[in-house]
Design a protein around this nucleic acid. Structure first.
Lengths: 343, 343
DNA sequence: GTGAAAGCGCTAACAC
DNA sequence: GTGTTAGCGCTTTCAC
């Protein structure tokens, strides 16, 4: 009932284990006759090579395994990225270990350590806010690392991100173009790099038009849809409520849409919305959502390609790749501010 | 620049490798004094144990790694399942290898073989249509297997599914209750078990009310949203178009909603829809969608718990767990058939 | 409490 | 073309 080993196959075929090894790996030349005998024994015993043992001995080949560490694998954005990474890995005969961090530095460290203990050849990492000194040792040991979606503070590795700041700037400028000056910002945790960048883009856009930021209109740390809906309710209760919203990720956008749905029908026609992140059915909402769209598949495949080129021996200086977002106009961002003319 | 080994640590601490091993694993008793010396050497060298080598020697512990094989990791349904499996694994100190099959038996076999070559302790599998004889050898070798979402034909393993047939029956009965008799079925590939079950539920519901199936109203093999939208257009062009639709997964439901959106506003109010699978924003569509909802997180955690109980030594006969779906009424399925009275 | 020897399953390096 | 020896990094086993 135990798994057969090469020794078992060798005995069954009447050859040495080394010959079996050669037949299995197909590298070295073996006579057709013995090859056949070995292959028959393999089939008879249902032998399959133990790749862990193999990798232990031949250190020049790695383990053909990479680790993918994301915030949350259940998030559709990271799920798409993961699939894209997996496809690139599969093409090259690599396997993928996955782990979610929940954005907790401690869990990130645990997952990375466990992956490195398994001798992964490389790591694709959506880094948490935490410190990444723990990566130094594995990297010196030969584990390649690529960051994706956000950079890791003080870590000199290839990094793939999107132009969060420019994308947000574009969105807010669009709202300004339609006559809005009271534009609220609804964001997730300010500790997350992408959120800080998007907020910076928001400020940049306002500043470029000479609009002063109103702290009353800025809400960070919205962690869920209900959070976002609640923030919206607060904003609308202000003496001078916003006429437009910039929501800085899909979760918040959806939460806000829910909040609007619960309000009286007439009102929400007045509020313009542009959101960061596209999502399924965004164009079927009323009004259809104008969004800044990023491409998780491109993020994943770009990161994977960078990683594999490093694994294949590229030792050049770390690169930083910035992918472009797309601005998709669908209607929700084109509502004009009441009583104002466009610029 | 190479990774330090236990030997290196031993030398640095002036002890034998065996003592280092004992300190690292913390099993056996080591004097506080030497423990401290070893720990210091570990820190100094940045030593981390090679778990592959460890697993090779100690066969009684497994590799603490499981494999998760799904149709498509990018599918939100499987992404949620994967996250749930990963959480269960993490709790127990296991790692998760993931692979997507695209529902291709060949790729399934490749992925499973690669996982088994890495000596995974267990496999959670969304099986393709193909034959699963290739699992026999690994299972005899000790790899535990659990199927989830669908059973594998002729494979005696624990299986976790939902009551697809009953859920579909419930949905179609609901439409019949609202006076519909011309109810179209829009389904994905008939080769997929869940789709056959849902279709069976559709037929059962019709039969229970003495409604004869009209083959004109049945469309299988819809692989994408455009496929679904096209099928809808065909159905509406019939001389006797359906007054209600049962869509057998989220992708098809969304495709149909898109098709309806493109039609003239007045018309689509007349067609009732109930879909299998809930999804974000389903309640924000117009009309809000009535759906049969299944819980991917429960599927994943149930499968994981079964797997780990097997890994922990449970040798009882294979179990089949069927989770219940929920029927969620939101409006789209409650439109009455024109000129008819409810039952 | 600690160490020496052997070996997990495989392959690199060298024989022949 | 094939076999032998040694050893990857660790732990089991048995000694002390």
């Amino acid at each position: 009932m135990k798994r057969p080993t090469m020794k078992d196959v060798a005995r069954a075929a009447g050859v040495s284990p080394m010959t079996v090894s050669r037949v299995i790996s197909g590298e070295s030349a073996v006579s057709p006759d013995t090859t056949a005998r070995v292959e028959q024994a393999v089939r008879k015993l249902g032998y399959q090579r133990n790749d862990n043992a193999r990798n232990l001995r031949s250190k020049n080949l790695g383990t053909s395994t990479i680790g993918l560490v994301v915030d949350d694998l259940a998030n559709p954005f990271y799920a798409l990225m993961a699939r894209s990474v997996e496809d690139e890995a599969h093409r090259r005969g690599y396997l993928v270990l996955v782990g979610s961090t929940n954005d907790e530095p401690r869990r990130e460290q645990e997952v990375v350590a466990a992956f490195c203990a398994r001798q992964v050849d490389g790591l694709i990492l959506v880094p948490t806010i935490g410190n990444h000194g723990f990566l130094k040792q594995p990297m010196e040991g030969g584990t390649r690392v690529v960051c994706v979606d956000r950079p890791a503070k003080g870590l000199a590795v290839d990094t793939v991100t999107v132009d969060n700041r420019a994308g947000a700037n574009r969105a807010v400028t669009h709202l300004l173009d339609h006559g809005h000056t009271r534009i609220a910002y609804l964001g997730d945790r300010f500790g997350i790099w992408t959120q800080r960048e998007r907020y910076a883009g928001y400020l940049e856009a306002l500043a470029a038009r000479g609009v002063t930021e109103d702290p009353e209109l800025v809400r960070h740390e919205l962690r869920s849809q209900p959070d976002a809906a609640a923030a919206l309710a607060e904003l609308r209760a202000l003496r001078h409520p916003p006429t437009a919203l910039f929501t800085s990720n899909d979760l918040i956008t959806i939460g806000v849409m829910d909040g609007l749905g619960q309000a009286e029908g007439g009102l929400f026609e007045r509020i313009a919305i542009v959101g960061f992140d596209d999502f399924p059915l965004a164009e079927r909402l009323s009004p259809p959502l104008t969004v800044v769209s990023q491409d998780p598949v491109a993020l994943g495949s770009t990161a994977a390609n960078l990683l594999f080129s490093r694994i294949d021996g590229d030792r050049s200086a770390p690169r930083s790749v910035i992918l472009l977002t797309r601005f998709i106009v669908r209607g929700s961002g084109e509502t004009r501010a009441a009583g104002r003319r466009p610029v």
